[in-house]
Computed example of a mutant assay.
Amino acid sequence: MKLSVSTLGLPGVGLDGAIEVATKHGCQGLELRLHPDTGVHVGLSADERAEVRRKVEAANLEISALAGYVRVCEPGDDAEKIEALTQELRLAGDLGAPGVRVFPRGDDPAVGARRLKAVAGTARELGVRVLVETHDLMATGQAVAGLLEAAGEPDTTGALWDLLHPWRHDESPARTLEALAPYLAYVQVKDAVSAHDTTPVPMGSGSVPLDECGELLRAAGYDGWVSLEWERTWYPHVAPVDEILPGAAAWVSRYAPKETA
């Protein structure tokens, strides 16, 4: 497993500060939230994109993913969603990011599948995948797997397992992983007070079954990105991400697949 940290946990810090935090705590990557407040968004010029990439690479970091906000299953005009996602894929290509996170925001897999198919050519050309998060109206692994199966584009799509959401929607980690196994490309880790109170808390001090999830991922041989999504942007009263990253690093170290001789 490779540890990344999302800039969602670093409101107002900026790219230079995020790089400093990531390197200080031994992260291999940064998950960049796409928003004007973070300094990384589709409105960047070619020179600005090159500078973002240069700074990250100079720090010996990788961009693990771009955390976008396209609502891939939301009812409405296809063209708008396809254009927005295409722009984010092109930004990912320029920055060297392997994937772009999207939200479902709808419950009809046919809608999302149609849009994922529409961007598949661009994604393939750029070498970037669309990562569908277990979130909102498709919070379970079963729901996201159904969408990705309907899309039928395994080379350009993948599942992002946010460990919180399927569990809080009464899907066990074992069932989530079973459903997502053919598609799993990315993991976001976090802890929270409870299934009903999602206030972030330090790793291991809340109710998310992190040990169970870790054991399942290790048994499955998962060796991809694990990103700490510390939601300080939405919960400004919680501790700085500096205080939480050591726990995330320890979790990744504990559950990384064992090397075989």
Rank of each mutant, 00 (worst) to 15 (best):
T7A: 07
P11R: 06
G12N: 10
G17L: 09
L30H: 05
L30I: 12
L30G: 02
E31D: 10
E31S: 03
L32D: 03
R33F: 04
P36N: 13
T38A: 11
G39C: 13
V42Q: 06
G43D: 12
E48L: 03
V52K: 13
R53M: 13
A59W: 11
R71L: 10
E74P: 00
D78P: 00
A79R: 13
R90F: 00
L91W: 03
G99Y: 10
V102A: 07
P104H: 03
D107R: 05
L116F: 04
K117E: 09
K117P: 01
A118Q: 04
V130C: 11
V132Q: 04
H135S: 12
M138L: 09
T140G: 10
G141A: 04
L147N: 04
L148F: 07
A151K: 02
T156S: 08
W161H: 06
W161N: 06
W161L: 14
D162M: 08
H169R: 15
E171M: 14
S172Q: 14
L177Q: 07
L180I: 02
A181D: 11
A181H: 10
A185R: 15
V187R: 08
V189N: 11
K190G: 11
S194H: 12
H196D: 10
T199A: 14
P202Y: 14
S207I: 00
V208Q: 07
P209R: 00
E212V: 05
E215T: 13
W225Y: 09
W225S: 03
P236T: 08
L245D: 08
A249M: 01
V252C: 13
R254L: 13
P257T: 11
E259T: 09
A261S: 14
